[in-house]
């Protein structure tokens, strides 16, 4: 058997084919920046969230966008007087901008949750926390989603 130097670099024809196939299967066009802004406005009632105080834990590079582990933690004493009321997660380029919205309170003891989400493609993820004083805090993170070469179909 002769042994040509089969795929020696990632731009190999077959790799391209796989990539194109994967691209063609990506879900419909992503949410528009307007839809993202509108979803965030609905959560904050129009208030502009300030950066800081929120940790958004998501791997910067993911192997598969179907189940991406994500954690959100908000700095807060979680007392009656000073606590987090809600945490919402938004994305930039899935078909819909909302991911999950959670309601909590001082009885939660901590403002921390984790889940697994879908990311249709590389994009920005935004976590917003609603605080008991009516203010909003946020954190954002850019995530690169690699497209699989070998997909079922």
């Amino acid at each position: 058997m002769s042994s040509p130097s089969w795929p020696r670099c990632a731009t190999d024809r077959r790799a391209m084919l796989g990539g194109l196939l994967a691209l063609s299967l990506v879900r419909p066009a992503g949410a528009t920046p307007e839809a993202l802004a509108a979803a965030m406005r609905e959560f904050t009632g129009g208030a502009a969230p300030l950066p800081g105080g929120v940790t958004l834990d998501i791997p910067p590079l993911v192997e598969n966008g179907n189940a991406v582990p994500v954690g959100v933690e908000v700095e807060s004493p979680m007392t009656e007087a000073d606590h987090v009321r809600a945490i919402a997660l938004f994305n930039e380029r899935n078909p819909l901008p909302n991911v999950i919205t959670a309601r909590l309170g001082p009885w939660s003891g901590a403002a921390r949750l984790s889940t697994r989400i879908r990311l249709a493609t590389s994009q920005r993820l935004i976590a917003v926390a609603a605080l008991s004083d009516g203010s909003y805090r946020m954190a954002e993170q850019q995530v690169v989603v690699t497209l699989a070469a070998c997909i079922e179909g």
């Binding site: 990632a10 790799a15 796989g18 070469a149 070998c150």
Partner: peptide, 16 residues
């Protein structure tokens, strides 16, 4: 074998 012996550890598009 061409993928999983000869080229294991390399990448095909973004995938290992």
């Amino acid at each position: 074998a061409q993928c999983h012996d000869d080229n294991a550890g390399r990448r095909l598009a973004g995938s290992l």
